[in-house]
């Protein structure tokens, strides 16, 4: 809520990077004390997966769309039930830092005898970190007419980029 306020406050107290503090060495023996504080970024799953729920397909090709909030929208001629969710990710880093978010736009799902594609959309493409930052990835699954039975697997990339 008060993301930018927090970011603003943080900016006044935050030292971005402290490079080695070398103790002066004169005639007396001294030991150097060095500290190097780096800005970091972390990306982690928040535990929710991109879940298309349970689908009973029809005779014709159809789509199942999961929006950023995880709600499903089934095209006509297809039955959807069960709980659906969008994939959730947490990002941490220095407050006020700007990052870009990108995902694969399409992902191929491979089954034993057939394939399917899904298109993916991240909920945001850019964010200014303010603590507790998260984004979701929803998508649209393209179910073919008479899609073969089986277990389908696929990978999709999620990338957090610093400028």
């Amino acid at each position: 809520m008060t993301k930018f306020m927090k970011a603003a406050l943080a900016s006044s107290v935050l030292v971005a990077s402290v490079m080695g503090a070398n103790a002066a060495n004169a005639a007396t023996a001294t030991a150097d004390a060095k500290a190097n504080i780096l800005q970091q970024v972390t990306v982690a799953s928040d535990g929710s997966d991109l879940d298309f729920g349970t689908i009973v397909s029809g005779a014709s090709a159809a789509t199942v769309a999961i929006n950023a909030a995880g709600a499903a929208n089934c095209s006509a001629g297809i039955v959807c039930s069960g709980t659906t969710s969008a994939a959730g990710f947490d990002v941490t880093g220095t407050n006020g830092e700007t990052v870009d978010i990108s995902t694969d736009t399409t992902v191929l799902l491979t089954g034993p005898t057939d394939t399917m594609t899904a298109s993916l959309t991240p909920s945001v493409t850019s964010m200014v970190l303010g603590g507790g930052d998260a984004f979701t990835v929803g998508g649209t699954l393209n179910v073919g007419a008479g899609q073969d039975d089986g277990a389908y697997v696929g990978n999709f990339t999620v990338t957090v980029s610093y400028q």
Partner: peptide, 20 residues
């Protein structure tokens, strides 16, 4: 992954990356 007797299952694995 055990294939279901009828129908299909989907497992989508996210792979995270960071670029600097």
């Amino acid at each position: 992954k055990k294939a279901p007797e009828k129908g299909f299952t989907i497992a989508l694995t996210p792979i995270y990356g960071v670029t600097i």
